[in-house]
């Protein structure tokens, strides 16, 4: 039986070159947030790694080192479909050559998605680009998944086999 929270449908969605935001909290309740620069899943889909620009993530990495609690939001800009995954065991991982090599394709995909809103390409490339040597990797076990597509059902737990399609009916 497949007990990984992230099933095939969800895996395909979160790895499809989406806009990513990564959040953490300090133990005193202060929050922090940074834009992600890509994601990958372990073969058994139990471990999710998100890449972040280290230079923008000092407070994020500190918080994760202290308590491991993480929330990651994936959003498909042109459809607004959004999913949030949360975990309690985030650790700072290792950035692989494959992670660095995947960066240009990630930026290109997201840039193409934003053409839907006629947002200039140069702007998108500046916004999403991260220097390869500035990447940091954060790995965790997704324990909770929520649909975040805007609408009255945003924030409800995702059911298996769902990548928050529900929002479509509310648009």
């Amino acid at each position: 039986m497949d007990s990984a929270l992230v099933d095939d449908t969800l895996a395909a969605f979160i790895l499809s070159g989406l806009s990513i935001q990564v959040a953490a909290c300090r133990d005193d309740g202060r929050t922090t947030l940074v834009r992600g620069a890509g994601a990958r899943l372990s073969a058994d889909r139990r471990q999710l790694t998100v890449l972040v620009p280290a230079s923008q993530s000092a407070s994020l990495l500190q918080s994760l080192a202290a308590n491991g609690r993480i929330a990651v939001l994936f959003n498909e800009p042109e459809s607004h479909r959004s999913v949030q995954l949360k975990g309690r065991d985030a650790v700072i991982g290792t950035v692989s050559d494959a992670d660095r090599a995947a960066l240009p394709a990630y930026v290109a995909t997201l840039t193409r998605r934003l053409q839907h809103y006629r947002i200039p390409e140069a702007f998108c490339r500046a916004l999403f680009s991260v220097a390869p040597d500035d990447l940091a990797a954060v790995t965790f076990t997704p324990g909770e998944a929520y649909g975040q597509t805007p609408g009255p059902h945003a924030g409800e737990p995702l059911r298996h086999g769902e990548a928050d399609e529900r929002g479509d009916s509310h648009r």
Binding site: A24, A71, Q84, A154
Partner: peptide
């Protein structure tokens, strides 16, 4: 492009949404 907002719950878990 909507802005992300992060908050922290009573259980200390972060939450991020648009």
């Amino acid at each position: 492009v909507p802005a992300g907002v992060a908050t922290c719950g009573a259980d200390g878990m972060p939450n991020v949404t648009y």
